[in-house]
Design a protein around this nucleic acid. Sequence first.
DNA 1: TGTACATCAGTGAACGCGCGTTCACTGATGTAC
DNA 2: TGTACATCAGTGAACGCGCGTTCACTGATGTAC
Lengths: 214, 214
Amino acid sequence: MASTGNGKSKRDTYRHGDLRNALIEAGLELARQGGPEAVVLRAATRQAGVVPNAAYRHFADRGALLHAVSQAAMAHVAHTMEAEQAALPPAEDPAAGARARFRAVGTGYLRFAQEEPGLFRTAFHVPGDMTHAAADTAAGPGGKTPFELLGTALDGLVENGLLPEDRRPGAEFLAWSAVHGLAVLLIDGPLRGLHPTQAHDAGQHVIDMIERGI
Amino acid sequence: MASTGNGKSKRDTYRHGDLRNALIEAGLELARQGGPEAVVLRAATRQAGVVPNAAYRHFADRGALLHAVSQAAMAHVAHTMEAEQAALPPAEDPAAGARARFRAVGTGYLRFAQEEPGLFRTAFHVPGDMTHAAADTAAGPGGKTPFELLGTALDGLVENGLLPEDRRPGAEFLAWSAVHGLAVLLIDGPLRGLHPTQAHDAGQHVIDMIERGI
DNA sequence: TGTACATCAGTGAACGCGCGTTCACTGATGTAC
DNA sequence: TGTACATCAGTGAACGCGCGTTCACTGATGTAC
């Protein structure tokens, strides 16, 4: 690995080797800092140490790159949600476990929104990706998309008698609306800049409301 | 009024007369069609029939214009919410009236989001404008901002015994999160393109949830 | 009522910018013989 | 094992674009005398 001395590194090989992934990774970094608008083709190639038009070997256009980055960001959301569930202490009983897993879905979602607002905005910028996202690109390590994780958690509530079966249909959209709305208010609405502790409390209150109102 | 013949009209006078408002109006039109990113200084001046830099007599920079447009869009939101309340049939009793006014707040908000997604996004694009917006620029004809309309409606619930007093604090953010979240899902989430009737139903379900869970 | 003058809203021309995208190319890699 | 060749990932140079913003200006308007 030769160095140019200006902080950039040069490839040993003429070929990059894994430019597609490098561009997605660069795009994620741009999105992390500035949201979807910041996913600029030239900036991504710059960061990957490659000439601008090299991107066209791997993506049809800027939109295709942004789409791939958005899917990757969605997978990050799923990962955080899964991690939140995995960190749960062992449940006293199945019903308590189902309830905790449901709440963890919302908590993980909100935690990601607070910790990675740029990625969060990028994940949801490309319309319609959440429910219909290809599972192989938008899923977390567990293989589920955020929307599927929510659905599974709701099923768990029903199975344990915590949610009447006739309330199950459409429940995704009730829960999701409330949590997503709070996320947006925390990111660039009037709740932006709230202390993480307060933000967590607000999240718990919204999840309380959902449990009561669902 | 002389005409150039190419569809644009020329001022009679050397001076425009009300360029500031004309630029805001043009900005609203751009926002209506393309959201906040579409509020482009050159496009606004073009639409106002004026040379680009003329805008600088009235706005410090593009950001100042966008801010003014955002405030105007917020006033439109307030106006729609007030209209929704004004269209309510006379209530059977005070409690029913308070409840109807509360629901109208959400319904009006959601209606605006569906009918004017570009303006809706523009209204909320500039962070923090909702709660702290200057009442004179972001308020509807009734003089209240959307956030104030929500607060007043919640107060009405408390006054009529429909909401326990100890649940009042912070209730804005619960209600608002849920409705705002649904609005976002309807605009460019997976619920985008829903038939207006279905969207209305979804709105009613979310508002039901809020009433139960608040 | 008429004239001189200050004000300042809008003009005209130009700038540098980074962007996405195109073209013809080059040279490293892997494969066939 | 060695050589010829096809492939195709990345290069280099260039394009046209609309953008925000700056400068020195002009001429309509309202005010003071």
